[in-house]
Computed example of a mutant assay.
Amino acid sequence: MQESDTEWSTTEQKIAQEAFEKAYKRETSALIKAIREKASEITELDDMWQLHDFLSARRHDLDGKYDYSYSVLIFIFSRLVKEGWLHLDELKGLDTGKVTKIAALTRM
């Protein structure tokens, strides 16, 4: 992922933090629901190891995706919008150029 030298005002930082937290909460809530469903279906030892592998993969994905560094935040937001965890209208108040970049990256 390429870094960006984009500057973030104090207001934009607050908007970005709130949007970031909303997306994280949505995704982790969906993950917890999926884990509960998978755990309730465990009947054999193999099922447990499959759940372990699933959890390891998801942890790796989440740890990499939710990086709140301003230098990569535009790319993170575009990915979250693309995946459905965040909506462009939740970024209202950010500089128009930032929102335009995020929207453009979601179409790639």
Results as ranks from 00 to 15, higher is better:
2 Q>C: 13
3 E>F: 04
4 S>M: 13
5 D>E: 15
10 T>K: 08
10 T>C: 07
15 I>E: 04
16 A>M: 00
17 Q>I: 15
18 E>V: 13
21 E>D: 09
21 E>I: 10
21 E>H: 11
23 A>N: 01
25 K>C: 12
27 E>A: 04
30 A>H: 08
30 A>N: 05
36 R>A: 03
37 E>R: 06
38 K>N: 05
40 S>W: 13
41 E>A: 09
43 T>C: 12
45 L>H: 14
46 D>Y: 09
49 W>Y: 15
51 L>F: 08
51 L>A: 01
53 D>H: 01
54 F>K: 03
54 F>W: 08
55 L>H: 03
55 L>T: 04
57 A>R: 12
58 R>I: 09
58 R>C: 07
59 R>T: 10
63 D>S: 11
64 G>Q: 12
64 G>I: 07
65 K>D: 14
66 Y>V: 03
67 D>F: 08
67 D>M: 04
69 S>H: 14
71 S>H: 06
74 I>P: 02
75 F>N: 10
77 F>E: 00
78 S>T: 01
79 R>G: 07
79 R>N: 07
79 R>Y: 15
80 L>N: 01
81 V>H: 05
81 V>P: 00
81 V>T: 00
82 K>Y: 08
84 G>P: 06
85 W>G: 05
87 H>V: 09
88 L>Q: 06
89 D>W: 15
90 E>I: 02
90 E>G: 00
91 L>Y: 06
95 D>G: 07
96 T>Y: 03
96 T>E: 09
97 G>Y: 09
97 G>F: 13
99 V>H: 03
100 T>K: 15
102 I>R: 00
103 A>N: 08
104 A>P: 02
104 A>T: 15
105 L>K: 00
106 T>D: 05
106 T>L: 05
107 R>S: 14
107 R>T: 15
